[in-house]
Amino acid sequence: MTAALTAKAGPNAAIRLIKTYPMELILAVLILALIFTAPGFASLRNLLNVLRTGSMLGIIAFGMTSVIIVGEIDLSVGAGAALAGCIVAWFAGALDDSLGGPVAVLIGVVVALGVGFTLGFSVGKFRHWFNVPSFICTLALFTALRGAANLITGGFPLATFPPGFDFFGGGYLFGIPFPVYIFALTFAGMHFLMNYTRFGRAVYAVGGNMEAARLSGIDIWWVKSMTLGITGVMTALSGTLIASQIGSGTGTTATGMELDVIAAVIIGGTSLFGGKGRIWGTLIGVLFLGCISNGMTLLNVSEYWQYVVRGGIILGAVLLNQVLERVR
């Protein structure tokens, strides 16, 4: 079968290419189309901005990919990102006088990352001990964390950061926005974790068949909880960058972000049924979403239409994957 396909080059080779790299090709076509139609899309400044916005989303999406592959879901990442930003801002304000700005921020970031991990890991443990689905647990957190973030700030933006802190979210290093480096690092880290470690193999096995994984001696609850914990850390990291970019800890930032994150993962070909998906695919999904929103804004498409189009894209991506699954 495979030999027959390779023997005949030409149209067959093209079909195989489309089957193997559907989203990559669609992204390439989209970028080409935008270069020719959207004014200013191809400028370096604009492309770097697309990357910067995509980074905030993508950092979380890489963690979310592992959560969805393992067969769970995390709806709390938007609220979690806002909470992380507020925690950092609170520490920056409270400890500024005694310890100085940088140390205060550092403590805030460590606490935010710790809280992110603990919350994520607990969601997994709740599923283990009380059989509460992660969907419900993180739906509760989705509301509760948003409230907690506003409790910390008292409902107003907390602009307590020391001067220079805006570099992490808004600055450039060697001409490239700083968050893009974090984005690249988390991509490399998660790609390695999912493809070259025992943990990554276990994630796929647990997501594909929990019972078989358990009987193979894999600690399924530890694996599930860890993916949620990792996503919590990524969320806190992204939330810190967002707070740095806007210059304050604000309880209302990153509203609706969880849906964009999940959309990016799904567009990247990860199956909501578990066991299937790639970090690379999520990278494509993040870039795809970033280019689409940026392109539509440049083309003066109204915001309301943008929502409709994004909804269509999510549905279309899932349909495409189902169809390709059948022809493969």
Binding site: Y204, G208, N209, E211, A212, A213
Partner: peptide
């Protein structure tokens, strides 16, 4: 099928 193998892998 249910307990021995991860069919999607």
């Amino acid at each position: 099928k249910e307990a021995g193998l991860v069919q999607v892998l």
